[in-house]
């Protein structure tokens, strides 16, 4: 094992994994994390804690991870290149490993213009692929980026994102291969609503044998309202929301849309499970964590496997 990660053990054990997501508050209130953790504990194998998602200043991912860990979660730190240079990133990598956090998702990061500080300086000293390689070299070579040695390495299970729906489509598998070559152990994809296109991408992934080199978790998320669906379709970068998805939600009375959104999410999970090479699901019920138990149960993914963790 590369780490003491519960997620790694579950994936290596051949189980169909399920990871969740938790957005830290834009405040110093720890209760927000504790409340959200309640819905996730026991229902998912690990929980991504976002790092200033959509470039809004929020509680640090590592700190919220620590609070989640106290509540019995297996947290995954998300780390973006937007706000920190290579020195700060390495300091945080060492810190999170020392705190007993086992999973790290490496991202380039949403551009600062999306957030609440659009005039901030974006750092981008590294991109996500360079970050993956830097963390892998720290873990496997015990080396800082500069080449200096360290005695105790950060034993982290390294994750990366993949977006099968961004441009150019034919390049997206090449980019996945680049991330795997840089050192990614697991992949979490963009939220999938266009299952057909995702299946095409997975076919290309299998053709290159990438599904045997990296664990691919397919991103899913329930939609709460027609407005939210439309917003994702038109405003969120790199999203592909087919019209049929919105039509299905429009087909029920307004008060039933959330329930239909949950059913739709379960249906998508079931379709994705049929696709060869998918190692699990990444369920992003952002600001709607209370529906996670229901979705996981309806998808027949309970109880979660138990693994021994040192």
């Amino acid at each position: 094992m590369k780490s003491n990660s519960k997620l790694e053990k579950i994936l290596e054990g051949g189980h169909f994994a399920i990871t969740g997501e938790l957005g830290p508050p834009a405040s110093a209130n720890p209760e927000v994390i504790r409340k959200k953790a309640k819905y996730l504990r026991g229902n998912v194998d690990a929980v991504n804690v976002t790092d200033g998602q959509t470039a809004v200043a929020r509680m640090a991912s590592w700190a919220a991870c620590l609070l989640g860990k106290e509540e019995g979660l297996e947290p995954t730190v998300q780390m973006t290149c937007r706000d920190r240079n290579r020195i700060a990133l390495q300091m945080d990598v060492l810190g999170i490993a020392a705190l007993g956090i086992n999973n790290l998702l490496c991202l380039t990061g949403d551009h600062q213009v999306f957030g609440n500080h659009p005039t901030a300086k974006g750092v981008y000293d590294l991109d996500s692929i360079q970050l993956i390689k830097m963390v892998k070299d720290m873990r496997d070579e015990k080396k800082f980026q500069c080449g200096d040695d360290m005695d105790v390495e950060p034993r982290l299970f390294i994750g990366a994102a993949a977006n099968p729906f961004a441009d150019p489509f034919e390049f997206r598998v090449v980019r996945l291969a680049n991330k795997v070559a840089a050192g990614a152990d697991f992949i979490q994809t963009q939220i999938i609503y266009n299952v057909e296109k995702f299946a095409q991408w997975m076919e290309a992934v299998r053709d290159r044998g990438l599904d045997r080199k990296v664990k691919i978790l397919a991103g899913v998320a329930p939609i709460k309202s027609v407005g939210a669906a439309r917003y994702m379709q038109t405003k969120v970068p790199g999203m592909d929301v087919p019209e049929a998805v919105i039509e299905r939600l429009k087909g029920v009375p307004k008060e039933d849309v959330p329930k239909e959104g949950i059913r739709q999410c379960v249906d998508i999970i079931n379709q994705i499970r049929e696709i060869k090479g998918v190692a699990g699901i990444h369920l992003m019920a952002i600001e709607w964590e209370e529906v996670v138990p229901e979705i996981v149960e309806q998808a027949g993914l309970l109880p979660r496997p138990q693994v021994y963790q040192a």
Binding site: D110, D127, S128, A166, D167
Partner: peptide, 19 residues
């Protein structure tokens, strides 16, 4: 806009920049 060397990032859509 991010000046990255291993691109494109996941934000590109229809050949345009996410920002």
């Amino acid at each position: 806009t991010k000046g990255i060397l291993n691109g494109p990032c996941a934000g590109t859509k229809d050949g345009k920049c996410e920002a």
